[in-house]
Measured scan of single mutants.
Amino acid sequence: TEEYTYTDKEKADRAAKEWANRGYTVTVTQDGPTYRVRVG
């Protein structure tokens, strides 16, 4: 499991979509002003 942190919702959504397109399980959680994209 890897985790990426973004401050921009659009970038987080785009990253999540790209990982999902590659067949990974993706979870996006909002943590205050940041968005965490957990992959795998």
Rank of each mutant, 00 (worst) to 15 (best):
T1K: 07
T1A: 11
E2F: 15
E2P: 07
E2T: 15
E3W: 11
E3Y: 11
E3M: 09
Y4F: 12
Y4S: 04
Y4R: 04
Y4P: 02
T5C: 13
T5I: 14
T5P: 04
Y6L: 02
Y6N: 01
Y6M: 03
Y6E: 01
T7Q: 10
T7S: 10
T7G: 08
T7A: 10
D8K: 05
D8V: 07
D8R: 05
D8F: 05
D8G: 04
K9F: 12
K9Q: 07
K9I: 06
K9S: 07
K11N: 10
K11W: 08
K11V: 12
A12T: 03
A12F: 03
D13C: 15
D13V: 13
D13Y: 15
D13Q: 12
R14Y: 10
R14H: 10
R14N: 11
A15Q: 05
A15G: 04
A15S: 06
A15F: 08
A15P: 00
A16M: 06
A16V: 06
A16Y: 05
A16T: 04
K17S: 09
K17W: 12
K17V: 09
K17P: 00
K17M: 13
K17H: 09
K17I: 11
E18L: 11
E18N: 07
W19S: 01
W19D: 00
A20N: 07
A20T: 11
A20F: 11
A20D: 04
N21T: 10
N21M: 14
N21P: 01
R22E: 06
R22S: 06
G23L: 03
G23H: 03
G23W: 02
Y24G: 01
Y24K: 04
Y24S: 02
T25Q: 11
T25A: 09
T25L: 11
T25V: 12
T25G: 05
T25P: 06
T25Y: 12
V26G: 00
V26M: 01
V26R: 00
V26D: 00
T27N: 07
T27R: 07
T27P: 00
T27A: 07
T27D: 06
T27I: 10
V28Q: 05
T29R: 07
T29L: 12
T29S: 09
T29W: 14
T29N: 06
Q30D: 05
Q30L: 09
D31G: 03
D31M: 08
D31A: 06
G32A: 02
G32T: 02
G32L: 03
G32S: 02
P33W: 09
P33I: 09
T34M: 13
T34I: 15
T34K: 08
T34L: 15
Y35P: 00
Y35V: 04
Y35W: 15
R36S: 06
R36W: 06
R36G: 02
R36M: 08
R36A: 05
R36Y: 12
V37Y: 01
V37H: 01
V37Q: 00
R38Y: 11
R38H: 12
R38F: 12
R38W: 09
R38A: 08
R38G: 05
V39F: 05
V39R: 04
V39L: 06
V39K: 03
G40N: 13
G40E: 15
G40I: 14
G40P: 04
G40T: 15
